[in-house]
């Protein structure tokens, strides 16, 4: 199917309404566009990003990754943090992108319990969106990165909440500027995570549900100990927070920590280089879309994701370039 023409003015109107007033319907429709993984949506995405880039109300979001096993209380915690950020920073816009697992059987998904995030629907500086993992490994949805490219220009702070299965949540390491791992003191999680190698992912750790005082204290010291073993080189840089969404304990400290990460965004060098992030997700996309042969082509013929991205203007253009080049390459190898 040939890509349909892009309705420039419609996309630009959506971007303007989204950027100016965070108009809910417009943000949602734009996200739909960035979730559409077909090649036909690419030109519209490029138009949207260009319009957003020019828009004076453009923001530059910091991505806060929140990962941890199901039941650790991630959603409730994110809700509490978002509430506090919105309260403390009257000009900030905050989004939550929550990823939930899809059924292997039907492809359908039950999407995040939005009501764990208890922010009034009248609060227009807040936006919540769920995504289905579509059975992708890595803890995010195949479209998460694309959607984040959009959200980056619309918000000041974006919480990205992963599926939370533990093993393979490495994607969030590349997507987020700062990653918090949420654990519970009662789960014996610290041992599990050590085994699973998940300890390599977070920048900081949150011991949530710390209302069980005794257990929380024990877990805190056990965790401090195991961090020293798991991350000998940087364990001292990692903070361990103790929080309880029931008593409110520790939430102020944690939300100030998050706020400081967001405020630091202005300082150059505080964030991972954009190109690393783009290249990582570009290579992930290449494998998903074009398989191992496509990935090899990207490596050998185009010099890898980083080089390609540096050469062409932007992510969408790089996708276009790989696609065109690889299709031509396939045709050539077949006819020769």
């Amino acid at each position: 199917m040939a890509p349909p023409g892009v309705d420039h003015s419609h996309v630009e109107t959506l971007v303007a309404r989204a950027a100016l007033e965070l108009h809910r319907g417009s943000v949602a429709e734009l996200i739909n566009l960035f979730e559409d993984q077909r090649a036909s949506a690419r030109p519209s995405r490029a138009v949207a990003l260009a319009a957003l880039g020019r828009h004076p109300a453009r923001r530059r979001a910091v991505f806060i990754g929140v990962t941890g096993a199901p039941g650790a209380g991630k959603s409730t915690l994110v809700g509490e943090l978002a509430t506090r950020l919105l309260g403390a920073q009257p000009s900030w816009r905050v989004a939550v992108l929550a990823v939930d697992p899809s059924s292997h059987l039907s492809g359908g998904a039950l999407l995040g319990d939005r009501t764990r995030v208890r922010i009034s629907s009248d609060e227009r500086r807040f936006f919540f969106r769920s995504q289905a993992s579509q059975t992708a490994l890595g803890g995010l949805s195949p479209a998460s990165y694309d959607v984040c490219r959009l959200l980056e220009g619309l918000f000041d702070c974006v919480f990205v909440e992963t599926v939370g299965v533990g093993q393979s949540e490495i994607d969030i390491r590349f997507l987020a500027d700062t990653v918090y791992l949420v654990m519970t003191p009662l789960g014996g999680d610290e041992i599990q995570f050590l085994k699973a190698g998940v300890m390599e992912i977070p920048d900081h750790v949150v011991l949530n549900k710390s209302d069980a005082k005794q257990a929380a204290r024990r877990a805190y010291y056990a965790l401090k100990g195991s961090l020293g073993l798991a991350r000998p080189e940087d364990a001292d840089k990692m903070s361990v927070f103790r929080t309880s969404c029931v008593s409110g304990e520790g939430l102020a400290e944690l939300s100030e920590h998050v706020a400081s990460r967001v405020a630091m965004a202005g300082d150059e060098g505080a964030q991972p280089p954009k190109l690393d992030r783009e290249a990582y997700f570009f290579e992930r996309w290449a494998v998903r879309e074009w398989g191992q042969r496509g990935a090899r082509y990207l490596d050998r013929e185009l010099g890898g994701g980083r080089q390609l991205l540096a050469r062409v203007s932007g992510y969408d253009a790089a996708q276009q370039a790989l696609e065109a080049g690889f299709v031509a390459h396939l045709t050539a190898t077949r006819t020769s």
Partner: peptide
């Protein structure tokens, strides 16, 4: 979900606005 929809269900007692 069984037939392949993505479904949002947040339980009871929601305001129509929510």
């Amino acid at each position: 979900r069984h037939v392949g929809f993505d479904v949002v269900y947040s339980g009871i007692r929601l305001r129509p606005e929510e």
